[in-house]
Simulated scan of single mutants.
Amino acid sequence: MSVYAIGKTICKMYLSLVIRAEAIGQENIPKEGPVLLCSNHISNYDPPLVGSFMKRKIHFMAKEELFSQKILGSLLPSLGAFPVKRGAGDRQALRKGLSLLEEGKVLCLFPEGTRSKTGEVGKGLSGSGFFALRSEAAVVPVAVFGKYKPFQKVTVVYGKPLNFQQLRNQKTSAADATEEIMDSIRKLMAQHQAEKNK
């Protein structure tokens, strides 16, 4: 069993039994071909939550500083993560992300670039729009909400793929494409929060 499979199993058990995590919409993830997952960001637990309930392996961009930590830094590549320099146009990370999508793999981004302190979906960085426009990937919005506390429940919702072909044909800017993605995440979250409050 691979390091990724072991890590995924452990995380899923912890999230399911202790945090009481709930996953909705896994059927919206294409079974093959390139996929770009774009999620809001409320906790450091978001990457394992998003990845643990999917059958396909996910690749993540992770801040460069994490790779300098001795133990974690050595594990991250095996867990599907690769480094990105925050606050700058990291061309190497962009090329790596596009390469993964060209190979038909799944790339997960947290467009806000940092965790939301309020739980509200913030403004996204243009990187997610860049990947959505420059690849043929299915763009899937993901909403995470709830509290990562024992038995308080957190929910991850995988939305239906967005139709980005028209935006690609119109040569939409990366910033505008990112805002389209963020708006989809906001709507997805609002919809499912309203259903839970009924």
Rank of each mutant, 00 (worst) to 15 (best):
M1S: 14
A5Y: 10
A5F: 08
A5T: 12
I6E: 00
G7Y: 04
C11D: 02
M13P: 00
S16Y: 01
R20S: 13
A21H: 12
A21Y: 07
E22W: 10
G25Y: 03
Q26P: 00
N28S: 09
G33T: 09
P34M: 08
L36Y: 06
S43E: 09
N44C: 08
M54Y: 09
R56D: 05
I58K: 02
K63G: 08
E65Q: 11
S78I: 01
A81G: 08
L94H: 02
G97A: 15
L100N: 00
G113L: 07
T114R: 14
R115M: 06
R115T: 12
S116K: 13
K117D: 13
K117W: 11
E120Y: 13
V121E: 11
K123P: 01
G124E: 04
S128D: 08
A132R: 03
S135L: 02
V140T: 11
P141C: 01
F145W: 14
K147N: 13
Y148Q: 10
Q152I: 04
V154W: 06
V156A: 10
G159A: 08
K160M: 09
L162K: 02
Q170M: 13
Q170C: 07
T172S: 14
T172H: 02
E180F: 12
D183E: 15
I185L: 11
Q191C: 04
Q191N: 10
